[in-house]
Write a protein that binds this DNA or RNA. Structure first.
Lengths: 138, 138
DNA sequence: TATTTTTGCTTGCACTTTGCAAGTACAAAT
DNA sequence: ATTTGTACTTGCAAAGTGCAAGCAAAAATA
């Protein structure tokens, strides 16, 4: 299903056309923070995504250059999903989502604690995490 | 339609449950940057949202405390939609979306120019814009 | 070597949401 | 008094979602 129709040339609109749904950024989150990178990993996440939806979202994320599929080093049966640079560049956005949600929603104590670390040095956290994500891709 | 089922206590997931769709953040954008604040204004935006979808999104944004409805000063026939503090606090997120999209999608020259201003002093832009949004609410 | 399990999907189907067009009710303008 | 503007609601076909089941190749186990 090619989603060719650009609604407008607004950057917000273009972005939402790629990842503006309830699931895509959860996959990015898993790749970014939880280091989960196989199909089965994503299925196991707390939000219980349906397998057909997962397959569909992985495909559109790949088509839009946010993730890549490659052979998993451990097994031919596994597929390794990884963030591209375009995907890694979503990190500042993901940090802001976390900070916004922290202000308005209850979240687990450990999450709050690590977000306080992020707040102390947002730039530093982003640089460090981006560097780590880059290292793990090759 | 009460959407009571929380998928998880992850802040990303909680956020996406509120505004994780293709339209909600466009309404926020209109309120934030284009100073559009009536039902008709939203309908007129470039992306051509369907009227029933607009009504539905305005309702959930209001239910989730991101916008408020009030009497329009100009006319009893009009309704004034405004961002709450919770809505204004989405500003850093909206800025990051703009910056991400600027890197990967073509956008109009005037948009690029104003984003370059934002990049020069991100903090300053956010503070200034948030202050203006607060002034216009009462 | 044969069988079972793991892994990454696809398919079928009921249910929900979306998007387009049309309609409605009240306020304001003519 | 009639038309226009504004904020919606309603009907309906088409598309998308979510659950369960199925499937094929690879890996692990017997």
């Amino acid at each position: 299903m090619p989603d060719n129709k650009k609604r407008s040339d607004c950057p917000i609109s273009s972005s939402l056309e790629v990842w503006g749904d309830k699931w895509s950024l959860l996959i990015v989150r898993d790749l970014m923070f939880a280091k989960q990178c196989t199909y089965g990993d994503f299925l196991k996440s707390a939000e219980k995504i349906a397998t057909n939806i997962l397959a569909s979202r992985l495909q559109t994320l790949e088509e839009n250059g946010i993730i890549t599929k490659s052979d998993h080093p451990d097994s031919k049966a596994k597929v390794l999903y990884q963030l591209t640079q375009k995907g890694i560049d979503l990190l500042p956005l993901m940090v802001e989502i976390n900070l916004w949600a922290e202000k308005y929603y209850d979240l687990p104590a450990d999450r709050k604690a690590s977000l306080n670390e992020v707040k102390k040095d947002k730039e530093g956290f982003i640089k460090k995490t981006a560097r780590e994500l880059k290292k793990s891709s090759y």
